[in-house]
Structure formats: C-alpha cells, structure tokens
Amino acid sequence: MRFGLIMSEVGNGLRRNITMVISVILVTFISLTFVGAAILLQAQIGQMKGYWYDRAQVAVYFCTASSVGECNLVEATPDQKNFVEAQLQSPGLAALIDRYEFESHEQAYARYQEQFSDNEFADFVSPEFLNEAFWVNLNDPTQSDALVESLSGLAGVEEVKDQRKYLDPIFAALNAASFTAIGIASLMLVAAVLLIATTIRLSAFSRRRELGIMRLVGASNRFIQTPFILEGVIAALIGSVLAAGAVLAIVRFFVQGYLGSTLQTTTAVIGMSEALLVAPILLLVGVVLAAASANVAISRYLKV
C-alpha cells in the first residue's frame, strides 16, 4: 500500500521530467558503453598477452653469406653452430629453457613461403638469404635477457631476438586506447552523476511545496526521498541496460563477427563470456552512481 503510493510518485516524477530523464538515460548509456569498452579492451589485451607470450620464442639467428656487420658476409660454420648449441645445453641456460629446435635454410624458406604466400616478393627470396636459427622456448618468457646477453656476440651469431619485443608496441597502442576509453568514460560518468543530481534537484524543486506539506504531515525522510532516488535509479538503469546491450552487440557483431573473420585468430579474441561478465558490472555501476547522486541531491530538501 505504501509501496503503491511510492511507485505512483515515481511514475509522476518520471513523466513530469521526461526530457531530463531522457538525457540522463542517454548520458548514462554512452558513458557506461565507454566503461564497458575500456574493460573489454583490457580483457582483450590480457588475452592477447597470454596467447602470444606463450608462443613467443627467442630466435638465435646465424650469419648468412649476405649478413653485414659482425658477420662480415660469412656464413656461420657448423662448429660455430655446435658451440651455440652447447651453450644452450650448458647448466646456466638449460634451466631457463623449455625446449629449442634448429631451423635450417630450407625450413626457414618453407615457413616464409607459407607466411607470405600471397606476397609478390616472396618469389625473389631464396633459401640462402634466410637465417638459420635456433628457436628457443623459455620456461618463463620474461627471462629472455639472460639468453640474449650470453649468446649475442658469439662467433657466427648475427642476432638474438626476443619475439616479445615485436609485440610490445602493439600492446602499448592497445593500452593507450584503453586508457583513453577509461578517461572518456570517467569524464562522461562525472557528467552523468551531475546530470542525475541536477535532474533530481529540479524535480524536487518543482515539488518543494508538496515536499514541505509531506514533511508537515509527518512523512519520514525515507518516504520522501525514496521516489526521487528511484526516479534517478530507474533512468540510470535504463541507460545501463542500453549500455550492456551495446557492449554485447559490439562483441557479438564487431569483435567476433568482423574482427574474428578478418583476423582469423579466433583464439586471441574476446568472446561473449567476457561481455556477459561486463554487463552486470555496468548495471551495478549505473545503479550505484545514480542512487548515490540522487541521495545527495535530495538531502537538502529533507532539512526542516
């Protein structure tokens, strides 16, 4: 019975301020979509790191007849290769290494052909241009420095390269994008909170006479403030639901649909399970922020 009374007050309030309510819905919708995008981007970065770091290897490239610098255009000799392999098996390095394998000119060429099959200049590359190499998988991919230090500069070694280094700029770019999204999201959230507070304050101001009468006939603070808080929460909740829907749609149609089919790397792309985790977070953030800001906004009318 009191519940019915409160809900009818909420309905009246929403109807009276319909334009403000719509703007609250839109602002929460957009801001929470950015929040969701930022979270998903972080999840994506995490997933890619896990995927690629597991596969990232350290390559010990040997000199070819076309290598300049230390190599002096001299192909690495079998002795030099054996010495490097002995180093890999030495107690100091063996502890770090999970496994390693040798790649000959022919194997390198085969892999090259496969990777760049639709590339024109693949035809101009011949096996002897491609480095022979040891491909080393580390137990802990972050400890590549020890390997790089002890093997670079050995006779016949052109370069020791940690593949992870190729990935770092990509992750840096993705991180920057996600921080940008977080920045925009927080600005928009501030706007949303202020807008909710303003809406509630306006709503209360237009009904201040009524509020005064309610206080005079003994309506409790909770009774008076609940309709206003619900008003803010309902508007924000609609925005949050839209944002959650947008996030799900982005993952379903853009990430899985478009990116998934173009990149062909389905394992490294986030999926619906992440999106379904983000959705309740967005709803919660929307509702809590709206309740808090509405609560602060209305408290002024509960003094006398």
């Binding site: 005079l216 006939v217 003994g218 309506a219 409790s220 603070n221 009774f223 509960l302 006398v304």
Partner: peptide
C-alpha cells in the same frame, strides 16, 4: 531532522 517527521 530525521526524527522531526515522527514528532510531527
């Protein structure tokens, strides 16, 4: 201020 309504 919380108790005022009950007083009234």
């Amino acid at each position: 201020s919380r108790k005022v309504p009950y007083f009234r």
